[in-house]
């Protein structure tokens, strides 16, 4: 049985200028111990579909799906109380901007112990011990002292480690990482990716890596879903995606990588004609203006 199964997920936002379909019929599934990467540009609906799984979308969003199940259990029509029991415990998420996702008013220690208190029912001393162990696991030096620090006293990479520690604190079965390294330097990015990969293989979690960086995909994923304007364009294992991309959009994305440049000019997505593109003919960039 798959860990997470989604069939025909659509998310529509009510906006002043009418309904906007951000996710349009996405189906995917992920198994235990697997790393699935969801790739796409901004506006492709990759974050929104995962926020729908977490139930974190604002009330203007309408989520429909033929099936959305975690460990065989329906999570589309959960009551808020039931949802809170799963979210943050069995499914955890790491957000893109580490400094913005931590609460600046509380110490990082308080914030990590809050999750432990809610889901694990540990007493104060045990929570503290667990928090120190978690900080050690994600490679924060002087964990005991660091617990009493505020987010602004830490660097971006350190804050991301705190976020990861918080996400894995309740031993989730599925970890969703939404662009976990986009705001970080390449050397720090490497450390964070290595850390995530190690934790994933140690704990046998399923992991969904949302990214727009093809390099990150190549370094981490087992299987890849390519998303474009709310639709799934292609799904393949990582090697065949890079070796023999089937869809025109995937080919366009890969050839836009500067390291794959052959001539003087980089090909762009608008140089390729993309079948099934709802905005056929319109250039990717001009579509919004």
């Amino acid at each position: 049985m798959a860990l997470l199964e989604i069939e025909n997920l659509t998310v529509t936002f009510d906006t002043a200028s009418g309904p906007l379909r951000a996710v349009d019929g996405i189906s995917l599934s992920i198994d235990k111990g697997e790393i699935l990467a969801i790739v796409g540009e901004s506006g492709s609906g990759k974050s929104v579909s995962m926020l729908a799984v977490m139930g974190l979308l604002p009330w203007t969003a309408t989520v429909t799906a033929d099936r959305m199940a975690f460990e065989g259990r329906d999570i589309l029509n959960l009551s808020p109380t039931e949802r809170r029991r799963i979210i943050g415990k069995d499914i955890a998420m790491i957000f893109q901007e580490p400094i913005a996702s931590l609460n600046p008013c509380f110490t990082v220690g308080f914030q990590i112990e809050e999750a432990l208190k809610q889901h694990m029912g540990l007493d104060g001393a045990a929570r503290r011990k667990r928090a120190i162990a978690l900080f050690e696991a994600v490679g924060i030096p002087d964990p005991e002292e660091r617990l009493s620090h505020f987010p602004h006293q830490m660097s971006g990479g350190q804050c991301q480690r705190v976020m990861i520690a918080m996400a894995i604190s309740c031993e989730p079965k599925l970890l969703i990482a939404d662009e976990p390294t986009t705001a970080l330097d390449v050397t720090i990015q490497k450390q964070i990716l290595d850390l995530l990969m190690n934790l994933q293989s140690e704990q046998g979690m399923g992991m969904i890596m949302i990214t727009h960086n093809m390099g990150v995909v190549a370094e981490t994923a087992d299987r890849v879903v390519v998303q474009y304007k709310g639709k799934k364009m292609e799904e393949a294992d990582v090697l065949s995606l890079f070796e023999t991309p089937q869809h025109a959009y995937t080919r366009a994305l890969l050839s836009a990588l500067p390291e794959n440049a052959t001539g003087d000019r980089l090909p762009t997505v608008s140089d390729f004609s993309i079948e099934g593109d709802p905005y056929q003919g319109a250039k990717t960039e001009g579509a919004r203006a």
Binding site: E41, D185, V186, H212, N213, M214, G215, A252, L253, A256, L257, P258, E259, D264, R265, L266, P267, T268, V269, S270, T284, E285
Partner: peptide, 30 residues
């Protein structure tokens, strides 16, 4: 990525047209 490619192409075209000199600051080695 794809927009990045468009902007990089634009910069290359403008450099040719106006004989511009660039100091390009980046952390992206590719």
């Amino acid at each position: 990525l794809s927009v990045q490619a468009q902007v990089l192409n634009l910069l290359a075209d403008l450099q040719d047209e106006f004989a511009l000199t660039y100091v390009f600051i980046s952390h992206d080695l590719s």
